[in-house]
């Protein structure tokens, strides 16, 4: 079975997932007590005005009609209009999503850069000092609540030491780079605005550290166990008996094979990071999807919340599709994917 078949199958699956996710979030959000029309109209609005508002928003229609309208819009790429901002939800998402994606990608890179070497070292020097420290670190990482870690980082590195900025994506005086992807580091690099890039990276450090911290431990543990499996394989013994250096056996023979099962963990981590970003963005006043969705929830802005859910689910499915494609690329044994 070739890659095209896998792609086609997965994209059909994506449609199903989006349908399912939208149905569930639609049902839940409309079961929540509270009336967005009244919230929008204000406390002192007359009942007539609220009714008028409700009619304008289509909230007076039966649920199935509302849902039918929503789906009809969705297939045309219309996520509806935000009750709170009055703008199309898709426009809002295009404006806020890149900031989140940038934060998530940097957090993921950070957790890979720290987690993988930590996992490899733990496996190679099993039960040694590094292994003990890494395991303790992993346990701490997994059990540390993000809001607490975020505050700690802010107090220490922003408040006390002043090493890093505590909020926003850029310093006040610096203009954002021209929008290409909406991710400042990438855009400023491409357009050659290095000062802006450095500043953007500087702003990313604390939120990415906070967001990625949990996954350092998760990735280190995964790599450790996958490496232990690989290091006990016969081919490692053959490689050693052939006079290959220890570093070569570990990094060129065992690590790529250990990375294969670990790619799954990265796919899952990506999903976690997207949701985790909601909290982290709130702590660091990061103007991304997280902040947007929190405000939307507070305003009972159903279309916005659903738009966020649909987009995040889509990203999650697409990342896991990428994981499957990575399997095919990394492991020659996989020729057929069911």
């Amino acid at each position: 079975m070739n890659i095209l078949v896998v792609l086609r199958r997965r994209l059909m699956f994506l449609v199903l997932v989006i349908f399912g996710v939208s149905l569930i979030t639609f049902t839940i959000s409309h079961m929540i007590p509270g009336d967005p029309a009244r919230l929008l109209a204000g406390d002192r609005a007359s009942d007539e005005l609220v009714a008028q508002m409700r009619e304008n928003l289509g909230l007076d229609q039966p649920l199935y009609v509302q849902y039918g309208r929503y789906i009809a819009g969705l297939v045309q790429g219309d996520l509806g209009t935000s009750i709170r901002t009055g703008r199309p939800v898709l426009e809002d998402i295009v404006a806020y999503f890149p900031a989140t994606l940038e934060l998530v990608i940097v957090a993921l890179i950070f957790s890979i850069l720290v987690g993988v070497p930590l996992g490899v070292a733990s496996a190679v020097w099993r039960n040694g000092i590094i292994d003990q420290l890494a395991r303790t670190f992993a346990a701490i990482g997994i059990s540390t609540p993000a809001f607490w870690l975020g505050l700690l980082l802010l107090v220490a590195f922003y408040g006390r030491l002043g090493w890093f900025p505590g909020s926003g994506r850029l310093d006040a005086g610096i203009a954002p780079p021209p929008t290409i992807t909406g991710m400042y580091v990438f855009d400023s690099l491409v357009t050659g605005q290095f000062k802006t890039m450095i500043n953007a990276i500087w702003h990313l450090v604390l939120p990415a550290l906070c967001l990625g911290f949990v996954h350092v431990g998760v990735i280190a543990r995964q790599i450790r166990s996958a490496m232990l499996d690989q290091l006990s394989e016969d081919y490692v013994r053959t490689a050693r008996a052939s006079g290959l250096s220890k570093a070569r056996v570990i990094l060129i023979h065992a690590l790529p094979n250990a990375a294969i099962p670990s790619v799954t963990v990265l796919g899952l981590a990506f999903g976690d990071l997207l949701y985790g970003a909601v909290l982290t963005e709130t702590i660091f006043a990061w103007p991304g999807m997280g902040a947007y969705v929190v405000n939307s929830i507070q305003a009972l802005d159903f279309p916005a919340v659903m738009g966020f859910t649909v987009i995040v689910s889509m990203a999650y499915v697409l990342v896991n599709l990428a994981v499957d494609l990575a399997y095919i690329a990394l492991d020659p044994r996989i020729k057929e994917v069911g």
């Binding site: 081919y235 013994r237 053959t238 008996a241 023979h253 094979n257 294969i260 492991d331 020659p332 044994r333």
Partner: peptide, 17 residues
């Protein structure tokens, strides 16, 4: 080089990837 070794399990003795 001067001393080489052949193991029991040819099925697993070579790196599969």
């Amino acid at each position: 080089s001067g001393a080489a070794m052949i193991f029991q399990e040819p099925l697993t003795a070579l790196n599969p990837t």
